[in-house]
Computed example of a mutant assay.
Amino acid sequence: MFSSNNSQKYKSCTKKGGNCFECHKDSRFDNKRFLIIVNVLGSAGPLRFLVNEEDLVSGVIESALKLYAKEGRLPALGSDNSKFLLYCANFGSDALSPWDEVGSCGARNFVLCKKPEQQPNMTEARSHIISRKGSGNWKAWLNKSLTFKISSH
C-alpha cells in the first residue's frame, strides 16, 4: 500500500497535471482525440490516423504526408506541407487555414491536394490577355475549318 507520505502527497495534489493518480486519470480526457480520414488526390485510397482536436491543420498535413511516404504510396508527394491544402470533404469549397485547429470545423473526412502552381512572372492581367489571345486564335481556326467544309459541298 501507500506510505503515509505518499498518501499525504496524493491527498494534497489538486492541480491539473500534478503527479497523483487522480490528476493523471482526469487528464486523459482533456485531449480529445479522434480518427480522421484524409483522401489524397491521385492516390488509391484514404489515409486514416488519430489527431488531437487542438492540432493545427499544418500539423495534420505534415502527419498525412509522413504517413503517405511511410506507406510507400504513389505518386510521391514530397514533405513540404506548405505546398498542400486541406479541405473538409463535407463542407464548402474553401481550404482550411494552416493555423486553424483541425477540430474547429467539426469534420472527420478531409481531402488533401497540392496547391495550384502559378508561373512566377505571370500577372493576372497578363494571363487574361494571353487566354483571350489564345481563344481568338481558336475561334479563327474554327471559322476557317467551317468555311472550308461548307464551300467544298
Rank of each mutant, 00 (worst) to 15 (best):
residue 1 M to R: 03
residue 1 M to T: 10
residue 2 F to E: 15
residue 5 N to A: 15
residue 5 N to K: 12
residue 7 S to M: 11
residue 8 Q to R: 14
residue 9 K to L: 06
residue 10 Y to S: 15
residue 13 C to D: 11
residue 15 K to Y: 07
residue 16 K to W: 14
residue 16 K to R: 08
residue 19 N to M: 14
residue 19 N to H: 09
residue 20 C to H: 01
residue 20 C to D: 04
residue 23 C to A: 08
residue 26 D to V: 06
residue 27 S to M: 12
residue 27 S to C: 01
residue 30 D to G: 12
residue 30 D to E: 15
residue 30 D to Y: 10
residue 32 K to H: 12
residue 33 R to G: 13
residue 34 F to M: 14
residue 35 L to K: 00
residue 36 I to N: 11
residue 37 I to P: 03
residue 38 V to Q: 00
residue 41 L to W: 10
residue 42 G to Y: 12
residue 43 S to D: 14
residue 46 P to M: 13
residue 51 V to F: 09
residue 52 N to S: 10
residue 52 N to G: 12
residue 54 E to P: 01
residue 56 L to N: 03
residue 56 L to G: 06
residue 58 S to L: 09
residue 59 G to H: 04
residue 61 I to K: 03
residue 62 E to W: 04
residue 65 L to S: 05
residue 65 L to P: 00
residue 67 L to F: 02
residue 67 L to D: 01
residue 68 Y to F: 01
residue 68 Y to W: 01
residue 70 K to C: 15
residue 71 E to P: 05
residue 71 E to T: 00
residue 74 L to F: 06
residue 75 P to D: 05
residue 82 S to P: 02
residue 83 K to I: 07
residue 88 C to Q: 01
residue 89 A to F: 07
residue 94 D to Q: 06
residue 94 D to K: 09
residue 98 P to A: 08
residue 99 W to R: 04
residue 101 E to D: 00
residue 101 E to T: 07
residue 101 E to N: 12
residue 105 C to G: 00
residue 105 C to T: 03
residue 105 C to M: 00
residue 107 A to G: 01
residue 110 F to D: 08
residue 110 F to I: 02
residue 110 F to P: 04
residue 111 V to C: 05
residue 113 C to Y: 00
residue 116 P to S: 05
residue 120 P to D: 00
residue 120 P to C: 00
residue 124 E to L: 06
residue 124 E to H: 07
residue 126 R to D: 00
residue 127 S to A: 13
residue 128 H to V: 09
residue 132 R to F: 14
residue 138 W to P: 01
residue 139 K to N: 14
residue 139 K to M: 15
residue 139 K to Q: 14
residue 140 A to S: 08
residue 140 A to P: 01
residue 141 W to E: 13
residue 142 L to C: 13
residue 145 S to G: 05
residue 148 F to L: 09
residue 149 K to H: 04
residue 150 I to A: 12
residue 151 S to R: 13
residue 151 S to P: 02
